[in-house]
Write a protein that binds this DNA or RNA. Structure first.
Lengths: 227, 227
DNA sequence: CTTAATTCACTAAGTAGTTAGTTTCATAAC
DNA sequence: GTTATGAAACTAACTACTTAGTGAATTAAG
């Protein structure tokens, strides 16, 4: 009789022969499952709307584990934010824009930013939620501070090279430029629901997305172009 | 003895002489107070984070009144959204951009959009919250549908006139343009908390705000300029 | 045997929404 | 001009359920 075995086949824990299928312990895997579930839940519903019990369920862990590993809902949220920014900044570094001529580098950055938002829709929602909470969680984060410095240096370098070789006009503020690059992609995507209604247009089909990317590249190229 | 009079001086209800200071009834005023408090609370905390009890308290009404006049938290939220869009679209119409030459009209629109967001910070948060909820509330709203049509006609008209008199290049999509105008202001403001940290710069002092507006005007003017 | 992973049963404080009324007021009948 | 009446404005107390977070025991692993 292995009737009770069916009660414990929660996951891919291929229940073995014995009476007691011993539950594997794996702290790292548990934490990963919590983080994955939390990212999803926080992105879907925001910090305030997210439910710890839902994270518990989706991560297939006992609720106590969340508090054991992460302390509180807010600390878990902070951790999720740090991981999200680490991911995007790491991906940006991998572009190796230093090796490209300025115009090509800038276009690649615009393209990348857009595609990253598209492929990682949680990112936008997490950032929105953190801003609703006035940056309370990342204010104290050293992780994020460090990531940002390196990134802005890269953008500044592209501008300097472009100015030097005459492809860009002079004195463009890298902070303003980067905010603009982010803005024209981010806003389109984060406001796609109200946007579809206001503009009476499907904003998320393939053609619309391609058109937006082209428009954004045009916007940025015209913005930096030498006269 | 008018000792009990002090108990009922909630508001500017200048308690008169008699024993029973009769509580003024004013359905319209009550609804206005609820709407004002709700707008604030929804904007501060999002739909999910907003608390009906807080609205009750700030509006100085009995909780039952909210359900009496608005039915539910969600219906109240929908109403707030409709009023918010009515406000911005009404203000835009008052600009009378049709009477200005195309370049001036467009610059005025960019300026207005930026200043409206600045002066009405709730607007951005309400829109964000509605998008987090996938546009569920305004999807069914006829009010918002009607407002949008008229507005987009105005933007389209500016572009047509500019193309005709040679100040703008041809074939600019008014939807893409308008999304961009909104984006470059909206993103800067909604993400100001995380932005201040990432860019290590004060984004909200007067000088920074002026600089951003100038940069945005430059961005849009270069985007539409005839070659 | 000791340490860490995991579970179970629980709590205290919210949470949107409701039940069952009382109070005010305009209108019309006396 | 005073008083019945019906409707709408307003109130207090409550309900059924959720919520983040815990105390203490149990079980696996080195």
């Amino acid at each position: 009789m292995k009737a009770d075995a069916t009660l414990t086949d929660d996951k891919a824990t291929g229940a073995t022969s014995g009476k007691k299928p011993p539950k594997k312990r794996d702290a790292q895997a548990t934490q990963k499952r919590i983080l994955a579930a939390a990212k999803r839940e926080f992105a879907r519903n925001g910090l305030g709307g997210a439910r710890v019990d839902v994270i518990t369920e989706k991560a297939n862990v006992n609720k106590r584990m969340i508090y054991h590993y992460f302390g509180s809902k807010d600390q878990l949220f902070k951790r999720i934010l740090e991981e999200a920014w680490t991911d995007i900044r790491t991906a940006e570094q991998k572009l190796e824009l230093d090796h490209l001529p300025p115009k090509a580098a800038l276009e690649k950055l615009v393209r990348f930013t857009w595609q990253y938002y598209l492929k990682n829709p949680e990112f936008i929602n997490l950032v929105n939620s953190e801003n609703l909470h006035r940056g309370a969680h990342i204010k104290k984060s050293e992780t994020i501070e460090a990531l940002s410095t390196r990134f802005m240096a890269m953008v500044g370098d592209i501008l300097r090279r472009g100015e030097a070789d005459g492809s860009f006009r002079a004195n463009i503020d890298p902070v303003q430029l980067n905010i603009t690059i982010a803005a024209i992609g981010y806003y389109y995507l984060t406001n796609r629901y109200t946007g579809s209604i206001i503009y009476k247009r499907e904003l998320m089909d393939e053609k619309a997305l391609d058109e937006r990317l082209s428009f954004n590249i045009e916007t940025i190229m015209r913005l930096v172009a030498a006269d």
